[in-house]
Amino acid sequence: MTVLAAPSTPAPAPAAATVRRAVQSRVEARAGYLFATPALVLIVTILLAPIAVVIALAFTDYQLGAVEWAWIGLGNYERMLDDPVFWRSLANTFIYVAIVVPGSVVFALVVAILVNERKKTRTLYQIIYFLPVTTTLIAMSVVWHFVLNPQIGPIAALLRSLGLPAMDVFGDPDLVLAGLATIGIWQLVGFNMVLFLAGLTAIPRDLYDAADIDGADHPWDRFVRVTWPMLGPTTVFVVVTTTITAFRVFDTVAVITRGGPLGRSEVLLYAMYLEGFQYFDIGYAAALTVVFLVTVVALAVMQAFFLDRKVHY
């Protein structure tokens, strides 16, 4: 408290200012720590510590409730290499992502461009397409399951009336991922559309006017020379968030197919869930979690890289 010791002696102005700044910065720092503490405590207890524990658990053979456990080094990862369920889950997850990402991004882009040109019906379309985003996916999965039911669903009835064979989407090993991906696209398209619409409205009108005068007035030229490049950052963002969301597919699998038929809809998160919370094979589940985490972080890093380098202007 030496700083405040001699307020009566008139110190030279700059010194006084320094003192005041020092006091202020101390007040600020104290408030800073105080305000950051709850967040910091939570970051450590429910984020950092659990991640560290997961990484550590992945090197053990711990089973929930077991009294004895041992460090087994890379044992869980070796087991993973030989585990057909893991490979199937990984492959199915990637196939799912490979359908959902292009499907929902392209669909959303087309819808956004068309909706953006509407005046009176803009809000109506926006509401309709956005509706699935707000709904409880579990409940709607039950509905989709019913809609695509090969015996009593409307789609099957429609196909039958057209003389086509009814498809048992969720019972057919070759169709099940496509069926789940359809629901994935259905849920994501509105979200992506809203993001694209935000990107579209941010394109200055002047650019289209300039393009008109420069002769780029063919719809194709307008799209290729103005719209698409101007949407670059939005597109990267949409693709990456969609990829991460699709990568975390779980709800539809848990409700509709439970990994079946023949394991053709087993996905990474569902395998994690089964190993961890149904079989309580904690060590192995932790190793799966680490693989999952690394993949998602890699995607996020890719996004940061892309946004910084590729589409920067």
């Binding site: 524990v53 997961v54 994690m272 904690i282 979690t289 999952f292 996020a300």
Partner: peptide, 10 residues
Amino acid sequence: TVPPQVTALP
């Protein structure tokens, strides 16, 4: 970047 499912086990 960390999805919530990662911390679920611990």
